[in-house]
Simulated assay, not measured.
Amino acid sequence: MPNRVYISFLRLPLPVRILMFALLVFLTFGISIHLLEPETFPTVFDGIWWAIITASTVGYGDYVPHSMFGRITAVILILLGVGFVSAYFGTLAAAAVTKQDAFSEGKIPFKGEGHIIIIGWNERSRELITKLINSRYPQMIVLIDETLESTPVHSRFVHFIQGKAHVDETILKSDIERAEKVLITADRGNDELQADMNSILTLLTIKGLCSQVKCIVEILTAEQVINALRAGADEVIQSNKLTSVFMVNSLHSNGDGLLSDFVHHLQESRLSARITHEDDIGKPFIDVCHQFLTKGILLLGIKRGEETFLNPSRSFEIEKDDLLLIFR
């Protein structure tokens, strides 16, 4: 039994063990000084108070031993107690610095729910994180990257985890089961095909650990889109395709930059989808569009299953489970 208690004590954190030793010293010397000089220290509490004040070198002077044995006890307490007090606060400071360094270096697991996980540090993820943490209602973000040595964003809304995203241990540190969404960005430092393979491998790892979490994957090559969907991607972003759309628009326009202006408004999260109300079912598109216009909202189109109808005909009827694409 004593051996078990000793082993359990050794397993306690070092600051806790030092604090327990310090409390034992205060208690022992507090009782001792009360027994040696009961007139100067009427109660045990007075003795413990004196022991704490003396060991911490504060020395109020409200209680002072007068006998020889009392003063010898005080000297021993000063020599012994100051060491414990200094060791305790020194250990706390060292632990705090170590904890902060581990947090900055991405070694601390994240605990929370409803957070967004972003995999890969690049210009796109940097801009995205900046917009998310500066929004009106910022959401907690977990950034996972293997190339960074420390967190690139110093914000209380960003938790950095250093490691390979296709390794189970790294993903589990992000509390994946309670995450809201995962965004896997492509590593443009690699060959495009290799970057897509790494993204799909990361997607397989995440879906294998938590199949219900929504995953958005950036794919560079058109041939790998189908593989990303097979791997369980809920949404695939073809960034190269989007870039080509901008280029074609710029070539065919007169330099007015209309598409860029439109995308700028989209960055402000003004585009959203709303579930169809029962009152709207069976109504033509033009009637529902007029209803939104009275509220200062523009109805752009309808998403029905896998199909999206932008600016459909006026007689296009709204059906149950349709998503209304609105622009505020």
Rank of each mutant, 00 (worst) to 15 (best):
D101C: 06
A74Q: 15
R71L: 12
Y137P: 00
G120Q: 04
V97L: 11
I76C: 12
I108D: 06
A74W: 11
A93L: 11
I116K: 06
D101Q: 15
T73R: 09
Q139K: 01
K107G: 02
W121I: 00
G90C: 04
S104P: 01
S104F: 04
K131N: 12
T91D: 05
Y88Q: 04
E113N: 07
P65N: 11
G163M: 03
G114N: 10
S150E: 10
N122A: 08
I171A: 02
E149H: 01
I117L: 13
I144L: 05
V153K: 06
N134L: 09
F84P: 03
F103G: 04
Y88N: 02
L128C: 05
Y88F: 15
A95P: 02
A93W: 09
V167S: 07
H159M: 06
R71V: 14
Q139V: 08
A87H: 09
N122K: 11
Q162V: 02
I161M: 07
I171S: 03
T98Y: 12
A87N: 08
G83I: 11
F69M: 12
S86V: 13
N122Y: 12
I133E: 08
D168G: 06
I117E: 05
G120H: 08
P109D: 09
L128A: 11
E123A: 06
K164L: 14
E169M: 14
K107C: 01
G120C: 07
M68H: 13
I117N: 04
T147H: 00
I116C: 00
E149V: 05
H154I: 15
I129A: 12
H166S: 08
W121R: 04
K107N: 06
S86K: 08
F84Y: 14
I118H: 00
